[in-house]
């Protein structure tokens, strides 16, 4: 088992390395002045100064190694081009808690509702309730988050004025974006849980347990629930990582200062260090989350744990 984990860990590191490298070179292969419009209007010698300051006068490969060195040994992702003086890391530090908040709140709202709906659908299989809940789940998954966001914004903020239209601050600012983010999770988890629950419910070991005297409540909570949650766990974890890509558009719509809106503005403003830095951050989060899923699955499903040690 340890060998497997070590291999996976190595894979993770290699992938991260590749991501950093590829992203870096992708940005530098783009046409146009790397410093963007900000600097184009400046006289040539000032430009040269700027370039030297950011190390842009050196060949690409050297820049790459310098970048790597700074990243690995100092945790330094460079400085923003568009907002000079602000390090990428500091911008990330400011934005991450904001995006995370929306994401977490959305998941805390969406996942339990989704799971419960899924279990309900499983028990009412084939009946109207089943079709209804599954249709609802499909709806949740099919309506794009930004569509939902704009609809929510229009009805609850603009028309009914129950919530602020845009901006960030106290809890009330987080409500609409969280809901817009979390609704999709309801659908995803309801569908998965229904399948998983039905699957476990009909297993022989549930019947066998019943035959030695388990009551229905005991069966539900001690056996079915635990076994049905297994596959669910493996989708919850990546969802945590995908918070960061999922909030991009929501942050634009609600004018929320998370890393998503920074990312978008850095994309449109060609702020390369920001783009690279954020990409690396998000990718690393995701890759790490996938690794975590493997670990988790090993911890909770004995079948996997043991077959690998042979």
């Amino acid at each position: 088992m340890k060998k497997y984990l070590a291999t996976r860990f190595m894979h993770m590191l290699i992938t991260i390395f590749l991501v950093i490298t590829i992203t870096f070179f992708m940005m530098y292969l783009l046409p146009g002045n790397p410093l963007g419009e900000l600097v184009e209007k400046l006289p040539e010698d000032v430009q040269a100064n700027y370039m030297a300051k950011h190390g842009l006068d050196k060949p690409v490969y050297t820049q790459y190694f310098i970048y790597l060195k700074k990243l690995v040994f100092h945790g330094d992702l460079g400085e923003s081009f568009v907002n000079p003086g602000r390090s990428v890391v500091s911008i990330l530090k400011a934005g991450v808690p904001v995006s995370s908040r929306i994401g977490f709140q959305g998941l805390i709202f969406g996942i339990p509702i989704g799971l419960l709906l899924g279990i309900l659908a499983a028990y009412k299989r084939g009946k109207v309730m089943d079709y209804f809940t599954m249709f609802l789940s499909l709806l949740c998954v099919s309506i794009p988050s930004f569509v939902l966001a704009t609809v929510l914004q229009y009805f609850f903020a603009v028309k009914m004025q129950l919530f602020p239209v845009t901006g960030w601050g106290s809890f009330i600012f987080t409500v609409l974006p969280s809901i817009a983010f979390g609704v999709r999770s309801i659908g995803v988890h309801a569908r998965y849980m229904r399948t998983s629950w039905l699957d476990v419910m009909n297993q022989d070991y549930v019947l066998a347990a019943e035959s030695i005297g388990f009551s229905r409540t005991q069966l539900t909570f001690k056996i079915i629930l635990r076994n049905a949650m297994l596959p669910i766990v493996t989708i919850i974890v990546p969802e945590l990582a995908l918070i960061f890509t999922g909030t991009f558009v929501l942050e634009t719509i609600f004018s929320i200062p998370g890393i998503g809106s920074y990312f978008i503005s850095s994309v449109t403003g060609r702020d390369y260090p920001m783009i690279i830095g954020q990409t690396i951050f998000i990718a690393v989060m995701y890759i790490f989350a996938m690794f975590l899923v493997d670990l988790l699955y090993m911890a909770i499903d004995p079948r996997i744990r043991l077959t690998d040690s042979k």
Binding site: M12, T15, V19, T23, M26, A241, L242, F244, T245, G246, F248, F263, V267, I275, T279, I282, A283, Y286, I287, M290
Partner: peptide, 11 residues
């Protein structure tokens, strides 16, 4: 597959 799809698409 280890990289988030949205990221790649945007880049």
């Amino acid at each position: 597959g280890s990289v988030p799809k949205m990221l790649v698409i945007i880049l």
